[in-house]
Design a protein around this nucleic acid. Sequence first.
DNA 1: GATTTATATTAGCAATTACTAATATAAGAA
DNA 2: TTCTTATATTAGTAATTGCTAATATAAATC
Lengths: 125, 125
Amino acid sequence: MSRDAPDATSQSKQPNGTTESACCTGVPEVEEDDLVADVQLLSALGNDTRYELVCRIGAAEGDVCVCDLEAAVGISQSGVSQALSRLYSAGLVTRRKEGSWRYYGLTDDAEQLLDTLATLRTDDE
Amino acid sequence: MSRDAPDATSQSKQPNGTTESACCTGVPEVEEDDLVADVQLLSALGNDTRYELVCRIGAAEGDVCVCDLEAAVGISQSGVSQALSRLYSAGLVTRRKEGSWRYYGLTDDAEQLLDTLATLRTDDE
DNA sequence: GATTTATATTAGCAATTACTAATATAAGAA
DNA sequence: TTCTTATATTAGTAATTGCTAATATAAATC
């Protein structure tokens, strides 16, 4: 490359690796297993219906019954059931049976994430 | 409904609302604007390529050049560019020009989220 | 056992997504 | 000015997603 522009790190007065091209340093490796797990979690949340379900469960006191969620969210019973199943697979909700009723609650992971998101919202306002 | 099963809250010894059906309490309202913003952020991250980009940028010291990200992630130049554009729109990355080079860094929001995700990973092991 | 209710699972389809190739724009060198 | 390089934007398409309707399963009642 003919440009010889300074790389990003040369400006921080602390060179941290050999320059492999004129503008750039290498990019660190990332842990593939971590990526897969995180993306499963993030993509489960990254949908209107599913995130709304998580937020409603999180805002309730105690566990919430499917039938209530169904009425609140306003899509079909099967749609809600599938959404909850996806959230459960991603480790974001807990579920228990009680007779013919199914109750859903948030996992600790989900609660922590919602907390962080709430913090970001507040900081951004 | 003919079942008359106890609702979820009756077990916590603290009734918190009128029972609108035999099994259930109401579901709290959620703030629609918050949902939209959060889902934009979460869905931007909920994709292999884009999350990998964020993680690589986060793991680097200082800002990273597009051309380095492109080589690291291994999809087309246009694919990387579109991914970065989506992340920028979601407020997860910063960008600056320097000559013909473009450098990307993480926003504070993104850093906080990555921290939380790392914490969850550690807790879950 | 038959019937009803709650909800999970399956099948199908329109809409959306994530990517490549092509093109446009910007910057630097000759 | 032309040419080259870096990278954003556009167009197109195969794959994936999110939903409804239908069906299956589980639990309760008579």
